[in-house]
Design a protein around this nucleic acid. Structure first.
Length: 761
DNA sequence: TTAGGGTTAG
C-alpha cells in the first residue's frame, strides 16, 4: 500500500479506538516499526490521550528510535503529566548517543520545572544556540518556578521578543503574585493578543480578585473558548459556583461551543453546588450531544459522583478508566473513602499506588488526622519525607501540625517545623492557624501568640484559634482583648469566635462581660446558649441558668444539660444535678461521664446507696469498660499510661518514684480521695488503684525523664479526678515543677501548689 | 510547534 494512501487514512484518526485500528493496519503491512510511522503514532497517542503502556509499546516497537521518535515520546510523557518519565527517557536518549533536537529542549525545560537551570547551563556550556523556542521555554520555566530575575534576564537580553515572550514574562509575574509588574508590562505591550488578555484574567483569578478578572474578561477585544474557560475556572476555583454555572449558560447562549476543558470545570462546579441531581443533568447533556470524554472529563465525573456520595458510580468510572487512570483519579478515590471514614479501603488504594504525588500523601495524612488517627497521620508524614521525591507543602503542614496539636506533641511539632523551615515550605494562612492551634493545645500560649503576631495579616480563623486556646486556658481578659482587636480591625467575628469568648468568660467567672457579649450576638445559636448556661451555672446562678434553658427558643441539647450538671457539681446542688443527669441519660445514654459526675456528687454528699445505684446502672448499660489514659511526650514519642499500668519499660522506676512521691505527700498531710468512682476497677482494688491513676504515672514518668526546671505536659482523654488534681498540685510545689495537664477541653496549670481550674471529677 | 483554560488534598 502506498505511503500517501496510509497518510490519508491517518488523517481520519479521531480517537484512541481509531488509532488502535490504524496501528493494527500498519502491523499487517509490517510498517509499524518504520521510522516514518513510529513518531506519528506517538503524536496520535498524545493527541487522543492514549494510556502510557500503549504509547510505550508503540515507541518500543521501533528498531532504533529516531530523535524524532524520542522527542515525540518526551512530549507524550510531558502532556500525560509524567515529568519523571520525561527525564528518565532523556537519560535513555543519551545512552543511545542521540542528541536532543531543538524541539526536545523546550519539553525538557518544562518537565524539569525547578531544575530548568540545569538544561540552561548545559546549553550554554555546549555553546548551543538558544533558538526562540528554547528562550521562550526558559522565560516560562523561570517564570513558573523562579527565580523570576532569571526569566527577566533572558527576556531583557532578547532582541526579537515575540508576543509569546511577553505573555510568558507577564505570566511569570502573576505567578509570583506581582500584580503591579504584570499590569505594568501589560500596559507597555503593543501587540496584545487574546492570550495576553486571558493571562490577565487568569492572573487576577489567581489573586482571588474576581472583579478585576471579570473586568478584563469583559474588555477583551476577542474571546476564544480558552478565555471563557479561564473565567469559568476563576469562578469555580474561588467557590463562586453560581457565577460559574451562569457564565456557562451565557457562553452557550452566545454560541460558543464548550470543549472538554469547559466540561471538566462545569462538572467540578456541580459537585460543589450541593445538588446531587445536577450531575445527572450534565451527564444527560453529554450523552445527548455525543461528547467524547477524555480522561480529564471522566476523572472530574468520578470525583463529582464520589462527592455526592455515589461511590458505586465513582468506582465504575474508575474501573472503566483502566490504564488511563491518572494520579488524580486515584487521589480522588482515596479521598472519597477518607471522607466517609473508611480508612482501611483508603489505605488499600494508597498502598496499591506505584507513583504518588504530594496530593496522594496529603489526602491520606489528612484522612487520618480528620478521623481521629493523629498518630498514624504523623507516622505517614515521617514515611513521606523518608521517601525521596515528594516534598510536603503547606497543605501537608496543616494536617500534620494539627495532629501534633491534637496529641499535645510539642517536641514533634518543633521537629516538623524545623523540617518545614529547612526545606523552605511556605506557610499558608491555614497553616499559621493550625500552628496557633498546636501551640495552644500543647499548653504554650506564648508561642501561640508569637505565631499570631508573626502573621502578615490575621483573619477570622487565626483569631478563633487564639481565642479558643485562651478559653481553654481560662484567660477571659485576653480573649475579650482579642475580640475587641478583631472588631477594631474590621474582621467580623463568627459563631466560633463567640463560642470561644463566652467559654473564656465562663472559665474566668466573668459574668457581666459574658452577658454583654452574648447580647451583642445578632443571632445566638444553641451553642452560645450552652456557653451562657455554663457561665451562669459556674458563678452560682443556677436557677437563672435553669430559667434560661426553659426560655430558650430552641430545643436544648446535651451540651446544655452537661453544663448544668457540671455547675450543680461545683455548687453542690443535688436537685438540679439529678434533673440534668436524667435528661442526659435520655439524650446520650452511652456517655459514661454523666453517670460518673452524678455518682461523684452523691459520694461527696455521703449518699452511698445512690452511688451504688448509678454504678449498677452503668454496669447494666455496659459502660464500665472504657478506660482513661494519660500520655506524656518524651523523645518525640508519646508514652501512654492507664490506671495500674505496668507495661512501660521503665515501670519499675516509675512505681518507685510514685511511692516516693506518695510518702512525701502524706508527710505534708495528703489523704487520698476515694470518693471518685473509678470506672476501671472494682471496690476492693480501689484503694490501691487510686495511687496509680494514669495521670500520676504520667507525671512520675515526666519527672524521671525530663530536665529539671522544664515543664511537664500531660494529656488526658477524660476529666482529671479530684484526687489527682490535689496530688499533682502538691507535687508541683514539692518538685518545683510546672505541670500542665490537658484533659477533655481544659488546661490545668499546676505551679507552686496552685491550679486555677476546678473542673475535675 | 515555544504563550492563556482542566480533575484531586486543605
Amino acid at each position: 500500500m502506498p505511503q500517501s494512501h496510509l497518510s490519508t487514512i491517518a488523517l481520519q484518526v479521531t480517537s484512541t479506538n481509531h488509532l488502535k485500528q490504524f496501528h493494527a493496519h500498519l502491523i499487517r503491512n509490517a510498517l509499524h516499526r518504520h521510522s516514518f510511522w513510529v513518531p506519528r503514532l506517538i503524536a496520535f497517542c498524545t493527541r487522543f490521550h492514549a494510556p502510557p503502556p500503549y504509547a510505550r509499546r508503540v515507541f518500543d516497537s521501533a528498531h532504533q528510535p529516531s530523535v524524532f521518535a524520542f522527542t515525540n515520546m518526551l512530549r507524550y510523557y510531558y502532556k500525560w503529566g509524567s515529568n519523571q518519565e520525561v527525564l528518565s527517557l532523556f537519560d535513555e536518549m543519551r545512552q543511545c548517543n542521540l542528541k536532543p533536537d531543538p524541539y526536545a529542549y523546550p519539553i525538557l525545560i518544562k518537565a524539569a520545572g525547578k531544575s530548568a537551570v540545569l538544561f540552561h547551563s548545559e546549553l550554554i556550556k555546549r555553546g548551543h544556540d538558544c533558538g526562540m523556542y528554547i528562550r521562550n521555554a526558559l522565560v516560562n520555566a523561570y517564570g513558573s518556578y523562579g527565580p523570576i530575575e532569571a526569566a527577566r534576564q533572558v527576556f531583557d537580553e532578547m532582541t526579537d521578543r515575540s508576543v509569546r515572550d511577553w505573555n510568558s514574562i507577564i505570566w511569570g509575574y502573576w505567578n509570583l503574585g506581582d500584580e503591579g509588574e504584570a499590569k505594568r508590562l501589560f500596559d507597555l505591550m503593543l501587540d496584545k493578543n487574546v492570550v495576553t488578555w486571558t493571562t490577565m484574567v487568569t492572573g487576577y483569578s489567581k489573586m482571588n480578585d474576581l472583579e478585576s478578572a471579570r473586568r478584563y474578561f469583559d474588555r477583551m477585544p476577542e474571546k476564544t473558548v480558552v478565555s471563557w474557560n479561564a473565567m469559568l475556572s476563576g469562578y469555580a476555583q474561588n467557590g463562586f459556583t453560581e457565577e460559574a454555572l451562569s457564565l456557562f449558560r451565557q457562553m452557550v447562549s452566545v454560541g460558543v461551543s464548550p470543549n472538554e476543558t469547559t466540561w471538566v470545570t462545569v462538572i467540578s462546579s456541580c459537585s460543589s453546588h450541593g445538588d446531587p441531581g445536577f450531575i445527572d443533568s450534565v451527564v444527560k447533556i453529554l450523552e445527548e450531544r455525543g461528547i467524547s470524554m477524555n480522561p480529564f472529563v471522566k476523572t472530574a465525573l468520578l470525583d463529582s459522583y464520589a462527592k455526592c456520595g455515589r461511590l458505586e458510580m465513582a468506582r465504575k468510572i474508575f474501573n472503566e478508566l483502566g490504564a488511563c487512570r491518572n494520579l488524580v483519579a486515584w487521589n480522588s478515590m482515596i479521598s472519597s473513602h477518607t471522607r466517609t471514614g473508611d480508612l482501611i479501603s483508603a489505605r488499600e488504594l494508597f498502598d496499591q499506588m506505584l507513583e504518588k504525588d504530594v496530593v496522594t500523601w496529603n489526602t491520606m495524612i489528612a484522612g487520618y488526622a480528620q478521623n481521629g488517627q493523629s498518630a498514624l497521620a504523623i507516622e505517614l508524614f515521617k514515611q513521606m519525607i523518608n521517601e525521596r521525591g515528594v516534598m510536603p507543602n503547606e497543605v501537608t503542614v496543616v494536617s500534620v501540625i494539627s495532629a501534633c496539636g491534637h496529641l499535645g506533641a510539642l517536641e514533634l511539632g518543633y521537629w516538623v517545623m524545623e523540617f518545614i523551615t529547612a526545606n523552605g515550605v511556605k506557610l499558608s494562612m491555614s497553616a499559621y492557624s493550625s500552628l496557633i492551634y498546636m501551640y495552644s493545645r500543647c499548653g504554650s500560649m506564648d508561642e501561640a501568640k508569637m505565631i499570631f503576631y508573626e502573621m502578615e495579616k490575621q483573619d477570622v480563623v487565626s483569631h478563633n484559634a487564639l481565642i479558643t486556646g485562651l478559653a481553654a486556658h481560662g484567660n477571659g481578659i485576653e480573649a475579650l482583648k482579642f475580640l475587641r482587636k478583631m472588631k477594631d480591625e474590621g474582621i467580623e467575628p463568627d459563631r466560633i469566635t463567640y463560642i470561644g469568648v463566652l467559654t473564656a468568660c465562663s472559665h474566668s467567672g466573668m459574668l457581666e462581660e459574658g452577658k454583654k457579649v452574648f447580647e451583642s450576638i445578632e443571632a445566638p445559636d444553641i451553642d452560645h446558649y450552652a456557653c451562657m448556661v455554663d457561665l451562669l451555672g459556674r458563678v452560682g446562678k443556677l436557677d437563672e441558668a435553669k430559667r434560661m434553658i426553659e426560655e430558650m427558643p430552641m430545643r436544648p441539647h446535651a451540651g446544655i444539660y452537661g453544663s448544668l450538671l457540671n455547675a450543680s457539681r461545683i455548687h453542690k446542688r443535688l436537685d438540679l444535678g439529678e434533673f440534668a443527669a436524667n435528661k442526659l441519660f435520655e439524650l446520650e445514654p452511652e456517655n459514661s461521664g454523666n453517670y460518673i459526675l452524678l455518682s461523684n456528687m452523691y459520694a461527696s454528699a455521703g449518699k452511698w446507696k445512690n452511688v451504688d445505684r448509678i454504678r449498677k446502672l452503668m454496669k447494666t448499660r455496659g459502660l464500665m469498660t472504657t478506660t482513661g489514659w494519660s500520655w506524656v511526650e518524651h523523645d518525640r514519642k508519646m508514652h501512654k499510661f492507664t490506671v495500674g499500668d505496668r507495661s512501660h519499660e521503665k515501670s519499675v522506676k516509675i512505681y518507685s518514684k510514685l511511692a516516693e512521691l506518695n510518702r512525701k505527700l502524706q508527710g505534708l498531710g495528703y489523704v487520698a480521695d476515694k470518693s471518685n468512682v473509678s470506672r476501671d476497677v472494682e471496690d476492693e482494688e480501689k484503694e490501691e488503684m487510686v495511687g496509680t491513676h494514669s495521670e500520676k504515672l504520667a507525671v512520675a514518668f515526666g519527672l524521671l525523664v525530663s530536665e529539671p526546671g522544664t515543664v511537664i505536659r500531660v494529656v488526658k482523654n477524660i476529666r482529671i479526678c479530684l484526687d489527682c488534681h490535689t496530688a499533682i498540685k502538691m507535687i508541683s510545689k514539692l518538685e518545683e515543677r510546672e505541670i500542665i495537664v490537658r484533659d477533655n477541653n481544659r488546661f490545668h496549670h499546676f505551679k507552686d501548689n496552685v491550679c486555677s481550674c476546678n473542673d475535675y471529677w
